[in-house]
């Protein structure tokens, strides 16, 4: 596990995401309300939809992304699907320092 620099914050659209590829793994890095940054494996627990392409809403603990394929809502802080759906996308720690987004991989 090591912290890796990803990109400057402004490279991620607000309420949007960018895809990061590391050792063949695709990771969605989200910029939610208030410039909080979250990272999840870019695959919905339902049928593997690319979460990075979903609509981001909510804030803080309630920030979530709606999967573009079938509309599951996934909590960004935990990776857990919102009830009544069940499932979890792998979650990665993030941090923001001097305007740069970092990811622990």
């Amino acid at each position: 596990m090591a912290w890796q620099k990803v990109c400057p914050l402004e490279e991620i659209p607000l309420l949007g995401a960018r895809v990061v590829e590391h050792r063949g793994e695709r990771i969605a890095v989200f910029r939610a309300e208030g410039d909080t940054v979250f990272a999840l494996r870019d695959a919905c627990p339902h049928l593997g939809g690319p979460l990075s392409q979903g609509i981001v809403s909510g804030s803080g603990e309630n920030a979530r992304v709606t999967c573009p394929l079938h509309g599951w809502n996934i909590g960004l802080a935990s990776g857990e699907a919102c009830a009544p759906d069940e499932g979890c996308a792998r979650h990665y720690p993030t941090r923001l320092a001097s305007g740069e987004v970092w990811l622990e991989l």
Binding site: Q4, K5, C7, P8, E11, W102, L103
Partner: peptide, 28 residues
């Protein structure tokens, strides 16, 4: 730009011998 850039996947490569605080190259 910057719209076209947003379509790109950011590649992160592990650099051998890099220290654990992780100064990896980021290509965006």
């Amino acid at each position: 730009q910057p719209l076209a850039r947003h379509y790109k996947t950011i590649q992160i490569h592990d650099l051998s011998g890099e220290s654990s605080h992780g100064m990896a190259e980021s290509v965006s």
